[in-house]
Design a protein around this nucleic acid. Structure first.
Lengths: 344, 344
DNA sequence: TGATTGCGTGCAATCGATTGCGCAAAAAGG
DNA sequence: CCTTTTTGCGCAATCGATTGCACGCAATCA
């Protein structure tokens, strides 16, 4: 039962191990009846090929490593789902590690991927250190980065979301509703993503001929509801003179926190204040009020990344197609409304 | 650079490969200076041991497989985090597969775990088929089940949450607030978990001398907000004669959906209707109103499961300690309130 | 009938590490 | 100064699969 090998099968079938190996992988030079006999013998004996032995010989593990910074991030889990679906459909398996933004853990994760000889690594960790990227390069492991175009090494591919486009869409929506005092609630930990979103915000304001006010730009310390609430309170206090009538947030979770802060300040969404999120997290439709946000194609991001990885491994992709940019879609719900006639 | 082996090192150091191997694993019979020399040579050459080759020889991969049904489930991601933290701290890696409640995928996942010779499998998929469990047993792979005590095979361990205790706590809380017409909003897909929660609900009602009404028990088709909303609507319509004043839900997400349905019906939480969730999902504190729920020790569940797995692998655990039961904690927030004086 | 082609298999090396056993040289003991 | 013991290291087999090469035999062709 436990641990039948091709040798065992070979013996029982009265052939050589090599024949068993070939029969099992449908090698053309193996006779049909031999193949049949071996196949059924293998089933009968409960043979499970050893990916370990195979990997040693072929130096391909059919395993892709994935590094995320927080497993529990709803954005990342959707990405992960896209990756997993794609890999599983192609017979690949998934090796997961979380860095938790800890450099030590990040290093151990990359190390583990190296030791286990994964065929490639997909990284969705906005602040992966370039040191790690070099490490991967040394290992000769190709990698694809999600939403992080910092690196352009030979074996590095990239899939990202068009942040500027997204912010333009969001801002147009809010501006069309008549808002002029629009704040941006960012995320210090957001890395390049945060930067691009803020740029998009500023560009859109400029294009609409609106002023960019420094006191309308607040950066939370992370992307969690708590940080959103805190930043929102800061915004409401610092800008008492002229409270914004709309706030666009770095992501849905911060927006959720912000909502609570707004309620606690005795204001209402969207009557007194319009609010937008980002990502279109599953629960966003059920917030109270349902959140206007931008649907980032998270699943597709993961799917694209995995597809790219597989193509790269099969040599179907060259340096030309090293990057892929995806666009999402504005989702208007009820957290945004017209500019209040009588400002509070 | 790419792929230095112990042979390469041995050659450069002028010793045998076996010496290199032993030096690298701090074998006592290797001289200190030799060890030193080899160590630094290995670093210098960028040596990365092959877990594949090692695994082949030792038949231990230091990899634990994890099977979940939905990666994107916020409950499971916390469990996963507990597992990942624990494993990583012990030098183990994590192999992840999602079954998506699909039998085919489930089979492929188990198959992949078998082929890759993982040392053990942790399963957090309420409805794993017993067929798969047998498969694992045949493979000789030990497993620990999370929140699923169906199997008690030789190499199967179990970690679970005390559902009945939890429901008693929730019900006591609601009953103390004066409620008598209390509904249960369950989850058909919840498997044994759903069953136990409903039993706990019924027991607690009985103990309080309250009647169990069949029309106060509704089962949603899954554990998502949408299903919660739908079930809530059904409840409000079917029980128009005598609407419950409190509803305890299978989980937080269903409660969130239910909240929306209640709002849309023109009722208010908790003024007209008290509502409770289950799990204490991260966002629950930010719902509007913040959700009264039961904190299931998700992280600890994962931690326990992983710890148990590691102990089992080290032979530190016998059949006696095959199961571990954890208790969570009632979290009272603002979705529950006193029984309304004047029923709607 | 003898030479050629092609089909079906077997031989043996290989991937990279681990490990029991054995053998020297050095240290300890008499 | 000659045994023992200890220390330090090498030999070679092994884990389970893959794969280039070669070989025997039957069918085909000249």
């Amino acid at each position: 039962m436990d641990g039948a090998t091709i040798y065992d099968i070979a013996q029982k079938a009265g052939v050589a191990p090599s024949t068993v190996s070939r029969a099992l992988q449908d090698h053309p030079r193996i006779g049909a009846k031999t193949r049949q006999r071996i196949q059924s013998l293998a089933d009968e004996m409960g043979y499970v090929p050893s990916a370990v032995a195979r990997g040693l010989k072929t130096s391909r593990s059919h395993v892709i490593g994935v590094i995320v910074h927080r497993i529990e991030d709803p954005f990342l889990t959707e990405v992960l789902r896209g990756i997993e679906d794609t890999l599983q459909a192609s017979g690949y398996s998934l090796f997961l590690a979380a860095s938790q933004r800890d450099l030590k853990r990040e290093e151990k994760a990359v190390q583990a991927m190296g030791e286990n000889r994964v065929d490639g690594v997909i990284i969705s960790s906005s602040d992966i250190s370039s040191e790690r990227m070099h490490q991967l390069e040394r290992y000769g492991i190709p990698s694809v980065l999600i939403n992080n175009q910092t690196q352009q090494a030979p074996h590095t591919y990239s899939v990202y979301h068009d942040e500027r486009y997204a912010m333009h869409q969001l801002l147009h929506h809010v501006i069309e509703l008549g808002h002029e005092r629009i704040a941006y609630l960012g995320n210090t930990r957001g890395g390049r993503t945060n930067l691009q979103r803020r740029q998009g915000y500023e560009e859109a304001l400029a294009q609409a001929g609106l002023k960019i006010r420094a006191d309308y730009i607040v950066n939370g310390e992370n992307g969690m509801p708590q940080s959103g609430a805190q930043s929102m309170r800061a915004l409401l206090e610092s800008a008492t003179a002229l409270i914004p009538t709309a706030v666009v947030c770095f992501n849905d979770m911060m927006a959720l926190g912000a909502m609570q802060a707004i309620r606690q300040a005795g204001l209402r969404v969207p009557d007194d204040l319009s609010l937008t999120g980002f990502d279109n997290v599953d629960l966003a439709a059920y917030f109270n009020p349902p959140l206007t946000t931008f649907h980032q194609p998270r699943y597709e991001l993961g799917l694209q990344a995995a597809t790219m990885m597989l193509q790269a491994l099969n040599g179907e992709i060259g340096p030309a197609e090293q990057a892929s940019c995806l666009r999402g879609e504005l989702i208007v719900r009820q957290s945004t409304g017209p500019h209040p006639a009588a400002p509070p």
